[in-house]
Computed example of a mutant assay.
Amino acid sequence: MYELEAKVPAYFHISIVSVHDSKTMKYIPYESDSYYVFGCGYNAFKELYKIHLHESFFVVRAKKNLQFKCIRWKRRLPKNVLTDSRIELTDIITRLKYPVRLRLVKYRDEDQDREFVFLTNAFHLTSLEIVELYKNAGRLSCSSDG
């Protein structure tokens, strides 16, 4: 975890290589009114809901097999934003872990000629601000498809 204002690491956790990074999310000391940006494959919905309960915000890449239904979507979108919608998770186990609505933003990165799908609980930000949070965390270079 990196403290943007102080420009120093605020927290780190070391684990053995066989432990997936998302398993260490439970050790992060979440703070209210903060933003947490996770790389590919961090769809640990129980931990993401913990962030939500701390009145904080997250941005994470959605996995391709995410099961959801669209509740509402925005019609006028900025350039390269393909989708900006409110969703509900439909997989019963996943929904038990994250029972409230999420936001899904699909973005086309022209430089990489790729599409990225983000999940967030930050409904107050614009879709491009969501993308910028992820970009500024250095995550668009992630090679995994999530």
Rank of each mutant, 00 (worst) to 15 (best):
V60I: 15
V105K: 03
F116Y: 04
K79M: 10
A62F: 04
Y36D: 00
L128I: 15
R61C: 05
K135F: 13
F118P: 00
Y36R: 03
E47L: 06
E55P: 00
K64G: 08
K46W: 10
K135S: 13
I92F: 14
R61A: 06
A122T: 05
K64H: 12
T83M: 10
L104Q: 12
E88R: 15
L140M: 09
A137H: 14
S127W: 04
L89K: 01
C70N: 07
G39I: 02
V81M: 02
S141A: 10
V131S: 00
Y35H: 12
A44N: 15
V81A: 05
K46C: 13
W73E: 12
S85W: 07
G41Q: 00
T90D: 04
N80F: 07
F45W: 05
L140K: 10
K63G: 04
L104H: 02
W73R: 04
L96Y: 12
L48Q: 07
H54S: 11
Q112I: 10
A44T: 08
S85A: 09
R101I: 14
W73M: 02
L133I: 03
R86Y: 07
K97A: 08
Y98L: 10
A44K: 11
I87G: 11
K46H: 04
I71N: 04
K63I: 12
T83L: 15
V81P: 00
V131G: 01
C40P: 00
H52T: 12
K50M: 00
H54D: 10
R139F: 12
H52Q: 08
K64D: 13
C70K: 03
H124M: 13
K135R: 15
R95Q: 14
N121H: 02
T94P: 01
H54E: 05
E47T: 11
D91W: 06
R86D: 13
D109T: 03
N121V: 06
I130Q: 04
K63A: 13
L125F: 15
R114E: 07
V117W: 03
N80A: 05
L133V: 03
Y36I: 03
Y107T: 01
Y36L: 06
N65G: 01
E110H: 08
E47Q: 14
L125M: 07
K97V: 07
F123I: 02
K63F: 12
L66C: 11
F68D: 05
C70A: 12
V81I: 09
T94M: 08
Y107G: 01
C40T: 09
G138V: 12
V100D: 09
S127E: 09
T126C: 08
V59A: 06
D109P: 01
Y98C: 01
E88D: 14
R139A: 15
E47M: 12
H54V: 09
Q67C: 09
D113I: 15
N65F: 05
K106A: 10
N136H: 09
L125Y: 13
T126R: 08
T94L: 01
T83Y: 09
K74I: 00
S56I: 13
H124T: 01
I93D: 02
L66G: 11
R76N: 07
S141V: 09
F123G: 09
L82M: 04
V131N: 01
L66T: 14
I71E: 08
D111G: 07
T83Q: 04
L89A: 11
T120M: 04
T94K: 11
V100Q: 02
S56F: 13
E110K: 11
K69Q: 14
